[in-house]
Design a protein around this nucleic acid. Sequence first.
DNA 1: CATATGTTGTTAATAAAATAACAATATTGA
DNA 2: TCAATATTGTTATTTTATTAACAACATATG
Lengths: 217, 217
Amino acid sequence: MRIRTSNGKGDINQIPEPTLRRLPGYLSFFKSLKINNVEFVSSGQIAANFKMDSTLVTKDLSYTGIKGRTKIGYNVNLLIDTIIQFLDFNSQEKAFLFGVGNLGRALIKYQGLKSYGLHIVAGFDIDPAVVNNVLNDVKIHPIDEFRDLSRKMNVRLGIITTPDAKAQEIADLMVAWGIKAIWNFTPQSIKVPDNIIVENTSVYSDLAVILNRLNNQ
Amino acid sequence: MRIRTSNGKGDINQIPEPTLRRLPGYLSFFKSLKINNVEFVSSGQIAANFKMDSTLVTKDLSYTGIKGRTKIGYNVNLLIDTIIQFLDFNSQEKAFLFGVGNLGRALIKYQGLKSYGLHIVAGFDIDPAVVNNVLNDVKIHPIDEFRDLSRKMNVRLGIITTPDAKAQEIADLMVAWGIKAIWNFTPQSIKVPDNIIVENTSVYSDLAVILNRLNNQ
DNA sequence: CATATGTTGTTAATAAAATAACAATATTGA
DNA sequence: TCAATATTGTTATTTTATTAACAACATATG
């Protein structure tokens, strides 16, 4: 059985995903340059910092529409503003988080996410020990209240940090109550309708790469 | 300025990184099949679960050396054992963790990592409030003790979950005391000698992809 | 003011990964 | 027992991403 991936047609000239994934790293670097009062940076300097090819840097940056100046490089402040704008990191996208265990708690408490466009507005759990707790202004609700809260607030993004076995159940609930994108931190692959966006974050993939490199080279 | 990536020559016929990254996901799926007493699974079924092409599944699995049986598929137990073996997930690689904040604490407490080959044996921090605490049998030490502990235990892997600004400093320390691979959870790019393995895990990259999909399609 | 140079940014070539095509084959069922 | 078929697994093709080559040009310097 084969499945043809939707090539979407509408997405002509869309930014390649590898480029998209590199942009937050550039942004972090540019922010540290700004702190050190560096005003301009060349593609070569950026490339050296990340040990990559300088032409790839210019190509990546060109997708954001920013222009560099010959013999001078790119304006650091402009780079920061442009990338933040391009990635919608100032959008403060609201999110619900399901499963307030170790990882869920860490994400809620992790202030850094706010400056990268994510605002977790409520947590959900079934454990009476955590329900009604408040972590960093974020209240934890029983899952029953998801439906009502979903109607009041207009939340498009849901985060799954439940135990693996609960992932599909929660995903189904999200789809039922209007969530448009799911960020899945469990290694379970979840099944949702085609119009729902799913992004899987698995530390296990990274771990696999590390162990492979440690042991096989 | 351009940099040619080391093509390493020795790594001929090495497993492609995308394949390596998919293997833990397969493993998780196979484990859930086993729980449901499924004995055999075909590449088509696997592909359907992940909404991918079935030939890619067979190609991925062939790297692990496992053989399927025509008309039957792959033996689930054998798949699980083979992938765990292939990824060294039963190696219990020892690791030091630096920066016991929200994320660091979550990683230490997260039992799931143990069955994926990672055993965090000690944490380090500068905050007197956390130093000497014990989390899940893992003791938190002041950073001064890193040198001595490094000599006693033979640890190859270090994890950085410090604030961004401290990442390079900690990385330098690790290199000085013999760490061979660094798992960097900060968005900062760290500079280390070529023989040191660095794996960057950035939730910001995933966030960038989610926001882009939510807003641009 | 003119020339040398560093840097961008585009176009071309290469490399890598995913997909398609298809041959081989073991199993099922008539 | 034999034919039909589902499935693996290999080879070829296409697509995508990266790297290389090079043209355009603004700036610094003599």
